[in-house]
Structure formats: structure tokens, C-alpha cells
Design a protein around this nucleic acid. Structure first.
Length: 459
RNA sequence: GGCGCGGUGGCCGAGAGGAUAGGCAGAGGAUUGCAAAUCCUCGUACACCGGUUCGAAUCCGGUCCGUGCCUCCA
């Protein structure tokens, strides 16, 4: 089945043709670890997790690399403010990031390189760029010489002149050209720094991804991704660095062949920003909702569309997933067969990750599985769910059946249920309803079935 | 200002020239002592104005709204 992906380079959906069919190589820009991951970080992580899984489904060998940026001026700012050591901060937030993403069903990337572990590679790459005449040293900085790369702007489709015309930020005096960007910058004594041919300093932001992608995947590789906001300047600059360092001044595909960008997340209709005060953290969300619900919410819109994050959409996803687990509960006695994922679901995902369409197909499949109580269909449902990172939990546990949890006393509930049964048997419905109301107060829902009453925790 | 993206039924959200998308919510029904859970039935929507076409939500032009990026924000 052919995979189609929207390539930012062409602005079109293209057939994905691997550079090396024996080994698919994928890179996605990960977070800068100076704070908790927000829902926008999570969207990127979930989308590329799904893409990696999909690739792995149809290719034997796939390497998915997603980095951790652990050297950055924002991190320095946090360290200065809090008094904590930089590596303490980065380690803390990298760990939290990984835990939070795991809660969303994000599988660990095959390689998760850290910027600080690739300083030498960045220095080497920078040196190559100077040698090739694409970078220069000025005022302790090393800058990429943008005019030396005529193809610059090919990804974000903006000419150099447009950028200058629209620039809102004052241009540093040491730049030869306003569009030039930093490869290496000097560090003061109390800033983190590494020795380099240009003195003690630290890398610019863009160079790390060029260095890490090249080291772990080799050039060119198949797919490079990240949030839409990274198109410019980050990805544009990565292309400039990597292509120019290796003599591909005229070929912007010499770094990565397909560029995939996920859309932005807004929160209750507003841009998520510190200034608005609506940064929505995964760390907080997972206290209120199962990670699987959040994952589905993130996948409920096509990845390139803007996604508005709201309580209403989370609740919708929850209702949908609850129903799927209800179906799995209904057919819990059906032994799932080993099964492949149905074509309609695979086709939807292969069509540029059309997750909404895939959910529709998953829904149809679930209904059929419930109606037919078929081992094959149940197997298909679980297999499809697995690929999408969903439906792998125990349905009874998910729905709260027979799971006492810390705050409920199962024996007390059973006692009340028995009492209610007695009341019902003697047609004392007032008493029966009273007991049900009491259980309701305990957050327990009763379901009468032909096999007797069942109870579950309300969610 | 420059370069993009988008406006689909109460809500979310696919589709992209001739269509049952799907979901959530809601209504009615079955079931139930009443509920819960489940099942069945029910929605003819595509911002606006022109145009192309036998036919447009889908193509073209314009308008109006919303929104993203424009040197380190996923």
C-alpha cells in the first residue's frame, strides 16, 4: 500500500518513495527541555509516533530519531532565575517529557539524542561551513552566510528579501547580512560553554539538528518533521547548514527528502502563549484524563489542520473511546485471533495520516465486531488500535468495573447491592432506589443485567 | 507590510465536480419496576457574492471573517 505524505517542500501530497527501501529514516525535532511539555509538544510527539509506527508496520527497518534540546538560552534563563544547575533542569524536564509522552502512548524514539552530547559534531559541521565559504567568524560568533546559499527559503517559500523586508527584530551589527544566523556564539563565564576553534562558546539552535540527524541517520534521509512553526527559520536553516556543509548548494533535498509539519494547537480558540496565560501542560492534563483520551483528541483532527484544544473535544474523545471499550467488554469472552489491520484503516492512515477517516473505519469495525462477536474482527480491532496507540487496556479496568480503587469499599458496595436485590425482590422499589442513590453518591453506577447487577466507578 | 492556512449541520471533524463520511450531543423507540448499559430510527450542512460547468461544498475571481509564520515558539 502506497504511503502518501504532504511534503512541505513541494506543497503537495506525494507518494513516499524511500531512499533505501531496506531502511527508512525519520527525524523529528523534539522539545527544548526548560519546562513541562505542553499540548503542542504533545501533538508533535503523537503525530510522529504514529508516523513511525505506520512506517514500521510496512517496513522491516525504520529508525526514528527525535532529539532533546538541552542547551538553549531559554534554559539558561530558567537556570539563572531558579538557581538550579542547567543539567539538573534539563535532566528533570527531559525525564518528565518522556514520562508524559509515554502516558500518551508515545513509544520511545529509536534514538533520542541530546544536543550537549553532540557538541563536537556541531563544531565539526561549523568548521566545514567556514571552510566551504558558507560561514564566517565575527565578533566571537560564527554566522551562516545566507547569501552564499541561493536556494535559501526553498522550504518556507520566502525570498531572502521578503524576510528582510518583514523583519521585526533589530539586526545584530556583526551580521554581514540581516538574514545570517548564528552557528556558534560566545559564552560568558557563568554560561554553559565548550571550547572551540572560536573560543569558549555554545552552539546556535539550528546546528544541533543538522549534526544529530546526520550522525544518526546519514544524509540524505527520508523524512524530517516538526511543528509548523519550525519551518522558518529552524528547518530552513537546517537545510542551509546541511546542504552547504556537504557541497549541495543547489539541492535542498540533499538533507531530507520529505518535510512533514504538524499544525498548531490553540486552546479554547486562542493561541497558546505565556502572555495569554493558557499554556496547557500535558503534566496537568494527565491528572484529569486518561492519556489515551488525550492521544485520541490530538489525533481527532488531521495532523496538518489547526487543532483547538477544549474540554468539549476531550469529552467527545472520551465518550468515543469509552464506547469502544464497552464493545471490547461486551466481547471479552471472544478470544481475539491474530489478525492484520483492515485495509480501510490502513488506507486512511496511508493517505497522509488521515486519522479522522481511520477513526471512522475503526468505529465501523468495532460495531461489526460487537455484532458478530467474531474472533477475527476482535483481533483486527485490537491490531488497528495497537498501531494507533489505543485500545490496549483492560476494558473492565478502563470502564471502572470491579475496580475498587483507593476511595471505594468493594465489600460495602456488594453489601448495598445485595440489600437492593432483596428490596427489588420484595418490590420495595423506594428502598431499592434509595440504595442506588446512595451508591451514586459514592460515585458508583449500577447496571442491572440478566446475570444480576454490576457496578462500576463513574468516570 | 510579506508569505501561508482555514471558514462544513447544535458541537467536533473527514471529503474535494455527480456523496450514505464518522463521532459527540439531542429527539423518538426497544429493553428496564424506574434507571444504567446496549440496540434501532432521526440531521441533506458546506462564510458571502459572482463566474465556469449539464452539474460546485469541491474549480476560477472577488469580498468578509478567523488564524499561523516573518531569526532561536512544537
Amino acid at each position: 500500500m502506497a504511503l502518501k505524505l504532504h511534503n512541505t517542500l513541494s506543497g503537495k501530497k506525494e507518494d513516499f518513495i524511500p531512499l533505501d527501501p531496506q531502511h527508512i529514516r525519520l527525524y523529528a525535532c523534539g522539545p527544548t527541555v526548560y519546562s513541562y511539555a505542553h499540548i503542542g509538544n504533545a501533538r508533535m510527539a503523537v503525530v510522529f509516533d504514529l508516523l513511525a509506527e505506520l512506517l514500521k508496520h510496512s517496513h522491516k527497518k525504520v529508525t526514528y530519531v527525535s532529539n532533546i534540546t538541552d542547551v538553549d538560552d531559554k534554559i539558561i534563563a530558567v537556570a539563572t532565575e531558579s538557581g538550579e544547575e542547567i543539567d539538573v533542569i534539563t535532566k528533570k524536564y527531559a525525564d518528565i517529557y518522556n514520562k508524559d509522552m509515554a502516558a500518551l502512548g508515545v513509544r520511545a524514539p529509536d534514538i533520542q539524542p541530546r544536543a550537549t552530547e553532540h557538541i563536537q559534531e556541531m563544531i565539526d559541521l561549523t568548521a566545514l561551513l567556514i571552510e566551504a565559504g558558507h560561514a564566517y567568524e565575527a565578533d566571537g560568533h560564527v554566522l551562516f552566510d545566507v547569501p552564499s546559499f541561493p536556494a535559501y527559503g526553498g522550504l518556507s517559500k520566502r525570498s531572502r528579501d521578503e524576510q528582510i523586508a518583514g523583519a521585526r527584530v533589530e539586526v545584530a551589527s556583526y551580521k554581514k547580512d540581516p538574514a545570517d544566523f548564528v552557528l556558534w556564539k560566545p559564552s560568558s563565564k557563568d554560561e554553559p560553554g565548550w571550547d572551540s576553534p572560536w573560543g569558549r562558546g555554545r552552539p546556535g539552535w539550528h546546528i544541533e539538528c543538522s549534526a544529530m540527524a546526520e550522525k544518526h541517520l546519514g544524509l540524505p534521509f527520508d523524512i524530517h518533521g516538526g511543528g509548523a512553526d519550525l519551518k522558518f527559520p529552524h528547518h530552513e536553516n537546517e537545510i542551509a547548514q546541511s546542504c552547504c556543509a556537504h557541497g549541495h548548494e543547489n539541492d535542498i533535498t540533499a538533507f531530507a527528502k520529505y518535510w512533514i509539519h504538524n499544525g498548531f494547537v490553540t486552546v479554547e480558540g486562542e493561541k497558546m502563549a505565556k502572555s495569554v496565560g493558557n499554556i496547557t501542560l500535558v503534566h496537568d492534563l494527565i491528572k484529569s484524563y486518561p492519556g489515551e483520551v488525550l492521544r485520541m483528541t490530538l489525533l481527532s483532527a488531521h495532523y496538518r489542520q489547526p487543532l483547538d484544544w477544549s474540554t468539549a473535544t476531550i469529552e467527545q474523545s472520551k465518550s468515543f473511546i469509552d464506547r469502544l471499550y464497552n464493545i471490547l467488554k461486551d466481547i471479552e469472552d471472544v478470544q481475539a485471533e491474530d489478525a492484520t489491520i483492515p485495509d480501510d484503516i490502513l488506507e486512511a492512515l496511508h493517505d497522509d495520516l488521515n486519522t479522522p477517516k481511520a477513526f471512522a473505519a475503526l468505529n465501523t469495525l468495532a460495531k461489526e465486531a460487537a455484532a458478530q462477536k467474531s474472533p477475527a474482527l476482535k483481533g483486527q480491532l485490537l491490531a488497528a488500535g495497537k498501531l494507533m496507540g489505543l485500545l490496549q487496556q483492560d476494558p473492565n479496568e478502563w470502564l471502572g468495573y470491579g475496580q475498587p480503587g483507593g476511595d471505594v469499599d468493594a465489600s460495602e458496595i456488594e453489601k448495598l447491592l445485595a440489600e437492593r436485590q432483596e428490596a427489588k425482590a420484595s418490590k420495595d422499589y423506594a428502598r431499592a432506589d434509595e440504595i442506588r442513590a446512595k451508591l451514586d453518591e459514592m460515585n458508583i453506577v449500577i447496571e442491572d443485567t440478566p446475570q444480576g447487577p454490576k457496578w462500576r466507578k463513574a468516570s
